Amino acid sequence: MDNMYWPVYKNIEREFLKIAEYINICDEQLKVYSFHIADLIIRCAIEIEAISKELYKRLGGNMNPVDENGKTRDLYFDTDCLGLLEEKWGISKKKVKVSALEVFLTREENIILTPLKKSNKRGSSGSQWKKAYQALKHDRRNSLKCATIENLISSMAALFILNLYYKDETSDLGRLYMNDRTFDSRAGSDIFNAYVVSATTLRMELEMDDLNIINIDEEKRKESIFIIKYTDSTYREMHRAFCLDYYETKSNFDKSEVIQKYVAEHPESKEKSMNEICIEAGGHELLCNIFVNRHSLNSKNYRTEVIVNKNEDIYQKLKYID
């Protein structure tokens, strides 16, 4: 999707990096403030307001909210729009890492950011950068100390994340067996890296869904903005190949006189897997003779992709193939 907000965000990035040419941006300098930084924070927040309202509309949010008296009121970018994004996508947990070479931060709390945490709250409960924005908007001179590098970085990080959701791009990473590409988690930024989680280790079964993803940490999944996964067509092809291999394996298993004799002599083995029975009945040689994986091995067009994490199912539910 064409993103008219992205060039504006990149201009703010460039101005921030220009500041870094004159100020050594390190942990001890995060409280440095200025009128120029105040201007950049306000510009960030204006963009956040606009993009959050568009995302709210895209999600089917009520564009004509009413107050407690039933009268139409203004649409609020924080409690209404960011509130819905939090409900649908869990944006308060999404993380970015400050990775610009021009920035010399060392403390983890300054490097790893969750800039949209509490962004849908108002008043003293809101995020620090949003409180700074409100103060600067209403009384810039007396609130200038809020215009810090720290608040600017946080507001840019928030805008960066919202831009990624607005673009909503899917990136093809290419064929798995010849893939020499890695996903660039900067996603076009010169300052931040987005958190990414991989969902490409699967436990293959006759029936498949997200429960078949192995080694995916649920907390990291909630924190990630991007997910690396198999394409839908690859996922279906992997499942089809597994099912065909399974049916041939099951046929070999049922026809094996060695296995049938063993099962007859060891009725308790019926509770065990085909793999376990093969090993017990004839060792690895029998296992290799029974098990089939030629369909899975012959597939060479498996592809992976990167999608934006919207807290939705990664993979569709698949039933066994007859």
Rank of each mutant, 00 (worst) to 15 (best):
D2G: 13
V8L: 14
V8Y: 15
K10G: 09
N11D: 15
R14I: 15
R14P: 06
K18S: 13
I19M: 10
A20S: 09
Y22W: 13
I25D: 04
Q29K: 07
L30N: 00
A38G: 07
L40S: 09
I41C: 05
I42N: 07
C44M: 03
E49A: 04
A50M: 11
S52I: 10
K53D: 05
K53F: 01
K53G: 05
L55A: 06
Y56P: 02
Y56G: 07
Y56K: 13
R58F: 03
R58V: 11
N62D: 13
N69T: 09
N69A: 10
N69E: 11
K71H: 10
K71Y: 09
T79I: 11
D80G: 03
C81A: 15
K93E: 14
L101G: 13
P115I: 08
K118P: 00
Q128N: 12
K130L: 08
Y133G: 03
L144F: 06
C146Y: 14
A147I: 06
A158D: 10
F160L: 12
Y166P: 04
E169R: 06
D172L: 05
L176G: 02
Y177G: 13
Y177I: 15
T182A: 12
T182M: 13
D184Q: 02
S185M: 08
D190H: 12
F192C: 14
N193D: 14
V197I: 13
E207Q: 14
M208K: 06
R221A: 05
S224F: 01
D232C: 02
E237R: 10
A241K: 05
F242D: 03
C243H: 02
Y246D: 15
F253M: 11
F253W: 10
E265Y: 00
E265R: 08
P267G: 07
K270W: 03
K270H: 05
S273N: 06
S273V: 06
C278Q: 04
G283P: 00
C288D: 15
C288V: 15
I290L: 10
L297M: 13
N301L: 04
E305A: 07
N309Y: 06
K310C: 07
K310L: 07
K310R: 10
D313I: 12
Y320N: 10
